[in-house]
């Protein structure tokens, strides 16, 4: 984290960022004021964002009395914690992959499907709402829908005699959680991919078909390669999104589903791992996973922007 450098560089006064050219154009005076103007932001992010995060990351490599150790990291590789990471990663992968596929199909349908004009703004507006409709209320909605007494469960049973719970479906399980997460994952994908599909130029399709390409060839050799960084990047974003989520899962399953955020929640509440520093390691693992997928996302986004201008 280079923030310390930034802070140090910006605090002693004038020089930073005021090269001669910039100074010539900059409104006169007020450099001290400018430094004062940005100091609160850096101080705030140091105190309430970077500091606490670094504290945990360093704590993961320390014993309770402060000496360095790798025991906490090693402690992550116990069956119960590993299985928590495994389930978390599986749910995140499944909801991100399905979200990406369905989101792509919807985005394609509303942009290039030749549907009535009102469909697209309706869908994007709704996506804006649904991608923000997460947390505890979302869990309630799905309990009311496909819970044991939910409308869909009851209707399927009464109309078709199909009891989905007898077929092994359970809302408080891997698939239940995945289906619920999709409610905000798909709209997010739609919101991000719609502009990307807009960026597919008509000329490319025309040129392709003039050269004798079939629809399938156009998609496989032109459209998908152009869209691939967007889709992949968005997939990573959805992955990180699901991985850090806890409220929906907690309201849905209580603590019966062993995913990392819920384990960490229990650890913070009551030190269930009986080792505070192991909790830090748990947090470090989460940061590494979400950090990697976000970093990759940024790289891929830069790539996709090359084409879609």
């Amino acid at each position: 984290m280079s923030t310390d450098a930034g802070l140090v560089a910006s605090s002693p006064g004038v020089p930073v960022g005021t090269s001669t050219a910039a100074r010539a154009r900059a409104p006169l005076g007020g450099s001290t004021l400018a430094v004062l103007g940005v100091t609160p932001f850096f101080l705030f992010s140091l105190l309430f964002l970077i500091g606490p995060t670094l504290y945990l990351m360093l704590g993961a490599f320390q014993t309770p009395d402060g000496s360095l150790t790798l025991d906490n990291i090693a402690g992550l590789f116990t069956p119960s914690i590993l299985s928590a990471y495994k389930i978390s990663i599986e749910v995140s992968l499944a909801s991100a992959a399905l979200g990406a596929v369905f989101g792509f199909l919807i985005a394609y349908a509303i942009v290039q499907g030749g549907l009535p004009a009102w469909i697209r703004p309706t869908m994007t507006t709704f996506s804006g709402v649904a991608s923000n409709f997460a947390g505890v209320p979302l869990a309630f909605a799905f309990i009311a829908t496909v819970g044991r007494l939910g409308l869909v469960t009851v209707l399927l049973n009464e109309l078709f005699g199909v009891n989905i719970y007898r077929y092994g479906f359970n809302l408080l399980s891997f698939w239940g959680l995945t289906i619920t997460y999709l409610y905000f994952q798909i709209p997010l994908m739609v919101l991000i991919l719609t502009p990307a599909i807009d960026g597919l130029k008509r000329e490319w399709r025309e040129a392709a078909s003039m050269l004798g390409a079939s629809r399938w060839q156009y998609w496989r050799m032109i459209a998908l390669p152009v869209l691939a960084p967007s889709i992949l990047g968005c997939f990573l974003l959805l992955f990180a999104n699901a991985f850090g989520a806890i409220a929906t899962a907690y309201a849905l399953t209580g603590s019966s589903l062993n995913i990392v955020p819920i384990l960490l929640y229990a650890q913070i509440r009551g030190d269930v791992l009986h080792n505070a520093n192991l909790g830090y390691a748990l947090a470090l693992g989460m940061i590494i996973i979400t950090g990697c997928s976000n970093a990759l996302y940024i790289v891929l986004r830069a790539r996709s922007e090359r084409w879609l201008r």
Binding site: P52, L56, I246, L264, I268, I287, T290
Partner: peptide, 12 residues
Amino acid sequence: LVVPPIVLVFGY
């Protein structure tokens, strides 16, 4: 967006 909220509050 990288640091999950639960990690943030843990640090606090």
